[in-house]
């Protein structure tokens, strides 16, 4: 195996293990920290795919901004095991059955699917800012602008909801 493959397996292992730990941790603060580790592992995968820009933005946006806010809220609310709401037994049974059905559906859906490997064009400049910017502003200009308006309206909505004196 080449060193790239070793890195790939290590990052995959790290991503999966920390993603599992997000779910299994009893302490929500640990969950958030493991989620940050997961994001780092995924950013590492982006770098392996020579998409440095995507990796950097992934770290800045998810690890640097969104997870900080998550951590912030969890620390403010001071969630811990005592504060965890106790569910009744029948609710738990229903939850297990529902997730089991979902698993069966997923397995059924994936069983018939064929794995097709997309052709990767691994030219030198494929993940650089220049390439990405040109694609975004030429080929996908309209979706790009529309999504930015979507973000803006979401932001306005959040600001509006958080105002104290709503008329």
């Amino acid at each position: 195996m080449s060193i790239t493959q070793y890195i790939f397996w290590f990052l995959s292992f790290l991503a999966l293990m920390s993603a599992l730990m997000v779910v299994f941790s009893r302490n929500p603060v640990y969950s958030v920290l493991f989620l940050i580790v997961t994001f780092f592992a995924i950013a590492g995968h982006y770098i392996l795919l020579s998409a440095q820009f995507l990796a950097a933005v992934h770290i800045i946006v998810y690890a640097g901004a969104i997870m900080v806010l998550f951590l912030y809220v969890i620390m403010m609310l001071n969630l811990n095991q005592d504060a965890e709401p106790k569910k009744k037994t029948y609710v738990r049974v229903i939850a297990v059955v529902a997730i089991g059905l979902m698993l069966i559906t997923l397995v059924g859906a994936l069983k018939g699917a064929t794995v097709n490997t997309p052709e990767l064009t691994r030219t030198a400049g494929v993940g650089t800012v220049e390439t990405l910017g040109k694609v975004l502003f030429n080929q996908f200009l309209l979706p790009f602008e529309v999504s930015s308006i979507l973000f803006l309206s979401a932001m306005v909505g959040a600001v509006y909801l958080s105002k104290k004196n709503l008329q």
Binding site: Q52, A56, V57, I59, I60, A63, G64, V68, T128, V129
Partner: peptide, 15 residues
């Protein structure tokens, strides 16, 4: 080639 973004990412992790 993403030096500024790297810098910005590390700074945002400092918190």
């Amino acid at each position: 080639n993403i030096g500024i973004l790297y810098l910005f990412g590390v700074v945002s992790l400092g918190v």
